[in-house]
Computed example of a mutant assay.
Amino acid sequence: MLLNIKSYIRKPEVAELFSYAVFPDDHSVEKTVSEYENNEAWQLYGYEDGELLVGLTGYEKAGSDLILHHIAVIPENRGLGYGRGMILEIMTKEKPEKVIAETDEEAVDFYRNLGFVVNSLGEQYPGIERFRCVYEVEEAADVD
């Protein structure tokens, strides 16, 4: 179940998860934490399995679209469906027309396996290619 974790964003387990989603140095993690603290539009949710925080996802609504800023799952729990589950719960809660994420090559297959269309943005940083991932949400058919 997703829980709003913005109120305890400074806990070490949240910083650890952010370190998997951004360049893993103290400056990058602090910059990311500050962005969530200072931007009311940015939402931050965590996924707990029992008492363990296994993942987090941060996003914002932009009109009818949902922009995923961060998603991370602790390494020992990857491949178990937590990332997919977090995205599906957010989509159910927010009901966007599109879900958009920008990522690096390591996460491209994750997004493709969820049905996102992936396009290269080219080399955004020296030696690092970035990708734009877009999922068009289909409207549920009306049942008569």
Rank of each mutant, 00 (worst) to 15 (best):
I90E: 01
F116S: 01
Y47I: 05
R10T: 13
G122R: 12
G63S: 08
I90N: 00
E51L: 11
S19N: 06
E76F: 08
R112D: 09
I5R: 02
C133K: 02
Q124D: 06
E16D: 14
E60C: 08
K61V: 05
E48M: 12
E136I: 12
A141M: 11
A107Q: 10
G58C: 05
G50F: 10
E97T: 13
K11W: 01
E16K: 09
L17G: 01
N113P: 00
P12H: 07
A141L: 14
R132F: 01
D104P: 00
L66C: 11
K6T: 03
Y36H: 11
D26I: 08
I5F: 05
N39C: 11
E136M: 07
I90W: 01
E40W: 04
S28I: 02
I87R: 03
N39Q: 12
D25T: 06
T92S: 14
R130C: 06
L52I: 15
T32L: 04
P24S: 09
A62H: 09
Y82F: 15
P126V: 12
W42C: 02
E16M: 06
V99G: 00
N38M: 12
I71D: 04
G63T: 02
T32K: 05
E136V: 09
I87F: 01
Y135C: 05
A62W: 07
K98D: 07
A41D: 09
N39F: 02
I128N: 09
L53C: 09
L3D: 06
V29T: 05
T32I: 02
E76M: 09
L68D: 00
Y111S: 06
K98L: 04
L44H: 01
P96S: 11
E48F: 15
F110Y: 09
D104I: 13
Q124V: 15
V118G: 04
V14I: 15
G79I: 10
S28K: 08
V33K: 13
Y20E: 00
Y135F: 15
Y111H: 08
L66M: 10
V108R: 07
G83C: 04
F131W: 09
L52D: 15
P96D: 06
P96L: 03
V117I: 13
E129C: 12
G58N: 04
G83Q: 04
V54G: 00
A72F: 03
T32Y: 00
T32C: 06
I128Y: 14
P75V: 10
Q124T: 15
W42R: 10
N113Q: 14
H69V: 01
V117Y: 09
N77G: 01
E16H: 01
P126I: 05
A141H: 10
K31E: 13
S28L: 02
Y111K: 10
N39E: 14
S34T: 15
E129K: 12
Y36D: 02
A140K: 12
E106A: 13
K98A: 03
L88V: 10
D144Q: 10
G46R: 02
Y59L: 06
F110D: 02
F18Q: 00
K93R: 14
D49R: 10
N38R: 11
Y82Q: 02
D65Y: 04
A62F: 06
G46L: 03
L44K: 00
D142M: 10
H27D: 13
I100E: 03
S120T: 14
V29Q: 00
E105H: 13
V117L: 13
N77M: 14
Y8D: 08
